[in-house]
Design a protein around this nucleic acid. Structure first.
Ligand SMILES: [Zn+2]
Ligand SMILES: [Zn+2]
Ligand SMILES: [Zn+2]
Ligand SMILES: [Zn+2]
Lengths: 135, 135
DNA sequence: AACAGTATGTAATAATATAACATTTGAAAG
DNA sequence: CTTTCAAATGTTATATTATTACATACTGTT
């Protein structure tokens, strides 16, 4: 019920785009989304990019900057914090959102030398996932 | 002397591209570089992108992913670690590389739940710089 | 000289993203 | 119910970022 409520305010295009991303097991690229929603009547890049922009604002998806691709948020408190962290495998390219309090607490309270604090961050970790480490 | 040595092995195009980036007070975009080196005989995107790729590998520059732009490395140990952190002002867009041992130690030793460790990361912090906070 | 590895030059094209403008929709207020 | 305003949509064109592919040249080493 809580879940349904969250999605009530998604518009038609936003919902279509979100569904694609949420169902994917890997980050989805904008033009891959576009290709996949042609049958649903979305024909042009701006329609996709506008939906993406709104979904990011709502915290329902994130952009993985190093890949120019989009993933659904799994942790559900990113909406407020705008703070994201990802684990990216350098071989199989698997991307996982990291939800780790120690990490987020550390980064949210981080102050640089000048005393500057940050309300928002994006962190991308690169390494080898379990599977790829074995081989 | 140490500094000169480091730059000995840059090729002609690599040095030209590096100079542009190093002299800039802000992140430089690939096509801005291209425009600025036309007079020096570099005419086509691949020449710039190849130089950028090599300079990144050497740790002499970094890509600021959220901006698709490039900055010269200030901290000189990134070559080994491939670990970068930036502070980005959301108003004036000023970008600064963060060199902070507490931060880098924390991230270099970070382990996620699965026990996965990472040899490489990119972190981008967003906030307001001193100047912009005042106004 | 022969070789291997790195770098360069060049043309074409792919992939990612935005600008600009007209139109429609949907909820809220009167 | 209709006026109104913000959000969302549709559409065309274009801007920006990045790579492929292939030919050539330079570098240091055997
Ligand atoms: Zn999230
Ligand atoms: Zn993997
Ligand atoms: Zn650096
Ligand atoms: Zn600023």
């Amino acid at each position: 019920m809580a879940k349904m409520q969250k999605e009530y305010n998604l518009s038609k295009n936003q919902q279509i785009v979100f569904d694609i991303i949420e169902r994917s097991s890997e980050p989805v690229k904008a033009y891959s989304i576009l290709y996949n929603v042609k049958k649903k009547g979305i024909k042009a890049p701006p329609q996709v990019y506008r939906a993406l922009e709104k979904l990011i604002k709502l915290g329902k998806i994130h952009k993985v900057e190093s890949k120019n691709a989009f993933v659904a948020c799994k942790s559900s408190n990113c909406e407020i914090s705008k703070a994201t962290a990802f684990s990216i495998c350098e071989i199989c390219e698997k991307v996982t959102e990291i939800a780790n309090n120690k990490l987020s607490n550390f980064l949210n309270s981080f102050e640089d030398k000048s005393g500057m604090k940050y309300k928002k961050y994006n962190l991308e970790f690169f390494g080898l996932c379990k599977k790829c480490k074995k081989t």
